[in-house]
Simulated assay, not measured.
Amino acid sequence: MELLTLKAYELIKNTDVMIYADSLVSNDIEGLVKKSCIVYKSSRMTLNEVLNVIQRHYNDGLDICRVHSGDPSIYGAIDEQIKYFNEHSMEYEIIPGVSSVFAAASRIGELTRPGLSQSLIITRVPVRTDYIENEDLSELARHKSTMAILLSAARAREVTEKLINAGFSENDRLIIAYKISWPDEMIIETTVKDLEGDLFKNRISRQAIIFAGGVISFHGGKSSNLYNENFKHMFRAGKKS
């Protein structure tokens, strides 16, 4: 709730209809809408049911907020809705949000470091989604870049096996970020070998990110030159020695 953008807050506060993903978004959000707002919880709705609700209220000239968790561009399942809106010439706007990946980074620190990892890989272990061979976790992990592994807490054993196959050691550090920004959030430091056990011990099987590689698992790198007194750029002259 506290990480809603100002734009999202204003739209939700004034909307006539709100459909929100109640399995991932706190029901406290219902306290933001006006009394006359019609509220739907989408966790038990199919795509067609959601679209029918949107179409009906859109035809009535009402403002509608379809509220997803985090940033809708990352595993948000919004493509199908966008396609429908375009096919039916419906006006819409996508409001960016704060992904749980970056909310978690505010707890664990910077995810990139010069000389160690200048890339961030956001991925998942497929369960019911299509398997893409060149995006297999074993292949991505070989880069040793910082990785945020989403939607995979229930597949911890597979995550461990794929990290080992990619050259990680059993004692390499991992971080579990659970329900970030919720009252019961947890940050758990673990290792490749202890990942499954720590998830089980804390009864975590969903709403968690597993951070691995890069600045999480490995040592080294160096400080950024950005504010080094000898480093010049278009806004500042470097100090002459």
Rank of each mutant, 00 (worst) to 15 (best):
M18Q: 02
I38A: 05
I122E: 01
D172F: 06
M90T: 08
L116W: 10
F85K: 12
R56G: 05
S169D: 15
V215P: 01
Y178E: 05
E133A: 13
T5N: 10
A104M: 03
G221D: 01
V215R: 03
G197L: 04
A153L: 12
V101G: 07
K162I: 01
V125E: 11
E91K: 09
A148H: 07
L6G: 06
R66S: 09
L120D: 05
D184C: 02
L163H: 06
L3A: 03
I122S: 08
L140I: 09
M234N: 06
I132G: 09
N27E: 06
G220S: 07
W182V: 02
G76H: 07
L11M: 14
E49W: 00
F211A: 10
A154H: 05
M186R: 15
E80N: 03
C65T: 13
S106P: 00
E49Q: 15
S99T: 14
T46F: 03
K240D: 11
L137T: 03
T191V: 04
S23E: 09
T112R: 05
P126N: 04
M186F: 10
E170P: 00
P183W: 14
I164C: 10
S138Q: 12
I187K: 00
E30H: 09
S26Q: 14
Y75L: 01
K7I: 13
E170A: 08
D79C: 15
R128Y: 07
A208R: 02
A103W: 13
L62I: 04
